[in-house]
Write a protein that binds this DNA or RNA. Sequence first.
DNA 1: AATGAATGAGAGTTCATTCAT
DNA 2: TATGAATGAACTCTCATTCAT
Lengths: 226, 226, 226, 226
Amino acid sequence: MVPSGIPRADEITGSLPDIIAGLDLPRVPQQDRSRQKRDALVAAAAQLFEECGYEATTADDIATAAGVSIGTFYSYFRNKRQVFLTLLARCVETLAALHIADLDIRTDPRGDIRATVHQAMGRDELFYGMRRAWTELLPRDPDLARYDRQINALIYAQILTAARRAAAHGLTHADLDLEATCWALTLLLDRAWQLQPRPGADPAADLARQQQALADLIYRALIREA
Amino acid sequence: MVPSGIPRADEITGSLPDIIAGLDLPRVPQQDRSRQKRDALVAAAAQLFEECGYEATTADDIATAAGVSIGTFYSYFRNKRQVFLTLLARCVETLAALHIADLDIRTDPRGDIRATVHQAMGRDELFYGMRRAWTELLPRDPDLARYDRQINALIYAQILTAARRAAAHGLTHADLDLEATCWALTLLLDRAWQLQPRPGADPAADLARQQQALADLIYRALIREA
Amino acid sequence: MVPSGIPRADEITGSLPDIIAGLDLPRVPQQDRSRQKRDALVAAAAQLFEECGYEATTADDIATAAGVSIGTFYSYFRNKRQVFLTLLARCVETLAALHIADLDIRTDPRGDIRATVHQAMGRDELFYGMRRAWTELLPRDPDLARYDRQINALIYAQILTAARRAAAHGLTHADLDLEATCWALTLLLDRAWQLQPRPGADPAADLARQQQALADLIYRALIREA
Amino acid sequence: MVPSGIPRADEITGSLPDIIAGLDLPRVPQQDRSRQKRDALVAAAAQLFEECGYEATTADDIATAAGVSIGTFYSYFRNKRQVFLTLLARCVETLAALHIADLDIRTDPRGDIRATVHQAMGRDELFYGMRRAWTELLPRDPDLARYDRQINALIYAQILTAARRAAAHGLTHADLDLEATCWALTLLLDRAWQLQPRPGADPAADLARQQQALADLIYRALIREA
DNA sequence: AATGAATGAGAGTTCATTCAT
DNA sequence: TATGAATGAACTCTCATTCAT
């Protein structure tokens, strides 16, 4: 069972880079030719995972799409899961670059939150290949579930840090359950990364609209009107 | 790819019961003995799906857990997917019973939202067996993805109806993008159904706390302070 | 392997009724109600075998089509094969009624042969349900292959008897290999029972035309022009 | 139901090679080792089909008999049916090599027919593995039934061509229904390919005897005595 | 390093037959 | 005698992974 309660303080350990360090990743090849081949495999996997899902994508499909043999695939990755972990590592790096905790919310809380949401959700291309595979693997890969929990816990911790700073400056609602609210926001973000522009609408404008609504929702959930 | 933009008006068609009607469900056996056996199979499937996930649970596992042979399993369900659909139907029935749209928000918005959230999330046991299976099947079952989209669209429509009523009475924020905000809340609810009490804490109290934070978040996202 | 050489004299033993006697048939029920039920099962089986083939027809299909339960099916027939044998017995009885050997060819050989072919091939309805099932079961049922061989041998013997009578009266070609020719004719007849009217044509007329061509072929293969 | 009326003119389309081209055949491996393995599988299948029939032969049996694993079997053939189609293609190639239509019947009709029958039936080894499988699959494989019909129609067309040439030279019986007679001969040939030498007799001599009787039968069915 | 043929455990599903009611 | 729920052996086919070349 995926435990999804508010993370306890002791669960917020390590950092996003630590998670990458803990992954069973293949070593990055040093030679240029090899690295290109590995990248081609990862790119092919991302596209196929996105289009067909993880299960429906065979190791053979990935190798073929990357223009190499199945044998070569297995010389770069110990197994199919490792390709996925490589994609995961890329995601986590992106998340680590967000620095939500550094959000200084004092001068323009609404603008700051909007900017952060925009930044967070604009990394769409880096989740490419992850969305479907993640939901497919999560339920049956205990390690992955742990990573999921850990990543969410760290994002939660960052949100909580920023929220506490706002609270310290008297910006938040008086009776706010900071922890539970930040956890709810973390869960919402997790879902928000799956947002798509609605078909028919101008994609960029539509996404911007959704991002703004989301940012305002977060703003109002936390910050009281002056 | 699962399209997750704000539902267009024309996507909000039918009703939750319509979705159940569209499912390829086995007929419910009339005889008591048979119904008991079918229920045992469904219960076994739910538990195994919850514990091991959908893929990792074989038809044989379910039959064995229910104390019948594989042949019996296939005489009650055409295939493994049909067991899942049976669980799904149960969920949708629960959702249909929520009547979010009927929420009359005028007198005590905060209390009403709290009550609704409490009611919505208190149905936990009925999602038992669905959480993991749903995320596993979603990416590879186009029909299911359609149902998912449809169900979310209908919940969104209900939230939007209630929110519009509040707006008509001048209760909501002035500059609110109602549609985008309600869609964000719908996505949040979808995630919220996976909430668990945090280990170590008193489960009931902890869930109540998370529910209240969630309800307040929704309240503040929509309703302006008097 | 199905042995299809010209039958040796010692293979021509017994009679068509003997074959029926050797079949593992269920006893015919005495009570009227029971006989009706059995007949309904046989009729349903014939139709399904004809339309779907033997393998594709399940015991359950037959029972359902006959309006009884699978249990009842198995109280009338020990197994699926026994239904087929029942149909077979009906065929063999029909064949036994042909009396080809009695053909007195002296006065009007051509007319006699035509009449016999017409009579032989006109029993179409009695082969109903057999054509597909026979070819399906033959290759995998050694007993059935033996029956096939035996039946063909007996028909061959009858044709040979008639042909020898004609030869004795100097009606046949001088240099005729009676045995081999009659065997070829037997094989041809076996195939001829699968003849259908060609689509588009008047069925009765078309069949009559094919029968006449077949009869003339036999006539010319055996009888020399005066 | 297998329609076995005299082929209509519009049914005689394409050529035997066209039929092979329409089959869903696996590509022939280029590497020697692979081809040998594929041939071993085909040979094993032929023997097992001949001895046990198509249905009774499992994919596993074939793989084991060929000394490879079931996985290897499925890397050479998409399914069991494809092995059969490979055998079928071999047969059709043989039939295409017969050139019955080219039969010039004017100078020595009897000798020509004998030679052709001899040639046609001497290809016995190439039908190995087909006889039982064909009759087993025919009733339940609509595609195969179509091929059967098509192949027979083409053979019929060739026989008819030769017979018409003979008729044009006034060699045939005056009142002959050419079409119906040639169709009967086609059906007879179809059965004749299942001829075996009778046990106990000298195989070669016995087959020659049967072939000669068959050829004479055809000769007399068509050609009038000078 | 690269290939791709080979492996074989394991999945879903069918259906002839049995037997308690 | 009639029922139909229950059985489970058997079958086809997939695909992650290995390893000889």
